[in-house]
Structure formats: structure tokens, C-alpha cells
């Protein structure tokens, strides 16, 4: 088990609202994790590259644009192709309920909608990464 969990928080796609991503990044930081924040408008390729270089345990994707059904599977496929099958993927933002089963089917660990407490997110990340 590693000393500290490392988590990448990224915003794929074109929407420019990163408040949610920042709130989550801050909450994970305050829970003792090392959070790599990459900022806005990341392509799936950029996210996979950052996950590889930073050797993270988990990736959190914040998507408000409605493009999650395209972007999320591309990130997951990219992680697999890079040999990063062990990296857990979380999605937050505006995700319609009917899309959640398909995202989970694609390999997403959990989907967090508006109103999710940061404590819930922290616990989910810890659990998925084999802590707590």
C-alpha cells in the first residue's frame, strides 16, 4: 500500500465551469490525498497521459456539458490501452439517471450528481482504492 493516495481531477470537454471540480479537489486534499488538478478543457488523451505520468490511483472527471457518454468511455479505453486498468474512474457533474448504468457498465466506479456530500466522495475514493 502506498503512503498517500494520488488522485487526478480533470475536466474533459468544453464547458467552462470548474467550481465543482475545485470543491472536490479541495475536499480530497483535506482528506489527506495528493490531488493533481489539470484544469479546464482536457482531451481524453491529455487525461490519460497525466494519469500515467502522475501514477495516480484514481481519476475524477467533472462533466457538465452533456458529452459524458462520448468522453468517459474514451478516457477509460485510453487508460486500458496505457496499461492503467487499476486506475479507478469517478464521474461528477450533470449526469442523467438513465445514463448511470451505461457508465458503470463502461467501467466507472461511481457517479456523483449535484448535492453529493464531499464526505461521500472521499469515502468512495478511499474504498475503491483499497483504503478505509
Amino acid at each position: 500500500m502506498r503512503e498517500r493516495l494520488r488522485v487526478l481531477i480533470a475536466k474533459p470537454g468544453l464547458d467552462g465551469h470548474d467550481r465543482g471540480a475545485k470543491v472536490v479537489a479541495r475536499a480530497l486534499r483535506d482528506a489527506g490525498m495528493e490531488v493533481i488538478y489539470t484544469g479546464l478543457r482536457q482531451t481524453p488523451e491529455m487525461i490519460v497521459e497525466a494519469a500515467l505520468q502522475e501514477d495516480v490511483d484514481a481519476v475524477g472527471l467533472s462533466i457538465l456539458s452533456g458529452a459524458h457518454m462520448t468522453l468517459v468511455p474514451r478516457v477509460i479505453q485510453g487508460l486500458r490501452e496505457a496499461g492503467l486498468d487499476h486506475v479507478r474512474v469517478f464521474v461528477g457533474g450533470i449526469i442523467p439517471d438513465e445514463d448511470v448504468p451505461a457508465l458503470k457498465e463502461a467501467g466507472v466506479e461511481a457517479v456523483f450528481g449535484p448535492g453529493t456530500s464531499t464526505q461521500t466522495i472521499v469515502e468512495a475514493v478511499r474504498r475503491a482504492c483499497g483504503e478505509g
Binding site: 498517500r4 479537489a25 479541495r26 480530497l28 486534499r29 483535506d30 482528506a31 489527506g32 490525498m33 495528493e34 490531488v35 493533481i36 488538478y37 489539470t38 484544469g39 478543457r41 482536457q42 482531451t43 488523451e45 491529455m46 497521459e49 497525466a50 505520468q53 502522475e54
Partner: peptide, 27 residues
């Protein structure tokens, strides 16, 4: 808390996709 927010990559997005570059954030 022992946690850290590593945000330097935000300013280095131009460097993405170049195999001649490797970026690592450290706390």
C-alpha cells in the same frame, strides 16, 4: 492533513501529447 493540491499542470497544457516531455507533480 498531509494532503496536497498539485496545480502546476494547469499552466503546462501546451506540453501535452509530446513524447519528448515528461511532467511529474510532487508534494
Amino acid at each position: 492533513t498531509g494532503g496536497a493540491l498539485l496545480g502546476d499542470r494547469v499552466r503546462m497544457r501546451d506540453l501535452a501529447g509530446d513524447p519528448g516531455i515528461f511532467i511529474r507533480s510532487m508534494a
